[in-house]
Design a protein around this nucleic acid. Structure first.
Lengths: 186, 186
DNA sequence: ACCTGAACACCGTTCAAGT
DNA sequence: ACCTGAACACCGTTCAAGT
């Protein structure tokens, strides 16, 4: 279905709101609870009512912010699968995730948020889809256990979002190693 | 060091505040963000200032609530270790955790909170201590990998706290199975 | 159609006044 | 020492009035 036509000022406002929210989250180290919608509206140069017209709840706004973070990650999967065997592709993709999240804290917040299935399940099917492909290939090759799905992996990866920044380098790799080993077929 | 003497009304107030907070959390399905301190004070029959005297921040109050949830879980470890080999003891303890959390949602919130090391690290050494014992025994027996600590396990178990209630039975066991397999020595 | 911003209800936090 | 509750600043949300 084709996107409906929108007034150009509405489109511009929407973009400025999301940009302001991303900037605010980047400043506050990505803690979603500290996002003041009043301040986002002010920073975007719109009234509060406008913010609410576009995003009827804080979660709707965060969902859009996170959807933008997620694109690059999901897009990295197909080339990896083309070049490496499934388990290698998964390991390399997770290495990339660690490296990406090390500098950009919001990425982990996005992954954690994608676990609240209620609102987000539909929104970024992209990550879910990419992970499902990875897992299916691994299962078909007999390298991964058959009883896990993309949601399980996303839930487990959520552990990374609670690693304090100071311990990131020491702990992130260990956690991912445990998860990957746990996903292996025995 | 012996506990300082407190006025009996202060002790009683503190207990009633914690009890009111636990009751409020039990009602709201354990979502810590929805705990209104105004309402907790009112339910406990104290002024807001009294709540703040005892718990200088929402987190301090939650820490006490969670500390109480944690006791039983940690206490179950020594008997299990006395009766079973390390890996069996770990598996059985996690089974108990799943069963316990199935009916009492606050338990998972408590475990998740214990990952914010800043405030909680000292407070419930009990869970940390119990898990460290379990892991050390397993490492000594050559059954568990040597590069994980109790914090890693707590972080991974945090995945359970984001499993929607409707999916609990189907997903909790799988997640724990993946975690246990990941902790095994290869 | 869409936008604005005052207004409302609520929350965390403080503090002068009490006992 | 400890407690109370009014008060303050702030936040999410709504809505009448504008363009």
């Amino acid at each position: 279905m084709p996107a409906r036509a929108h007034r150009s000022d509405a489109v511009a406002n929407r973009e400025r709101i999301v940009a302001a929210a991303r900037a605010a989250l980047a400043d506050s180290n990505g803690a979603a609870g500290e996002l003041s919608l009043h301040l986002v509206a002010k920073a975007a140069g719109v009234g509060q009512g406008t913010l609410y017209r576009h995003f009827p709840s804080r979660e709707h706004l965060l969902a859009e912010v996170y959807r933008q973070e997620m694109g690059e990650l999901a897009g990295a999967v197909p080339p990896l699968l083309a070049e490496y065997p499934p388990l290698d592709a998964l390991t390399r993709w997770l290495d990339r995730l660690i490296e990406y999240a090390r500098v950009k804290r919001g990425v982990m917040a996005a992954i954690e948020a994608s676990a609240w299935q209620d609102l987000y399940a539909g929104h970024h099917g992209r990550l879910d889809e990419a992970l499902t492909t990875l897992l299916d290939r691994g299962k078909a090759a007999g390298e991964l256990r058959a009883d896990v799905d993309a949601t399980d992996v996303i839930l487990l990866l959520g552990a990374l979002s609670r690693v304090p920044e100071a311990e990131w380098d020491a702990r992130a790799r260990t956690l991912v190693a445990v998860i990957v080993d746990g996903l292996r077929r025995r």
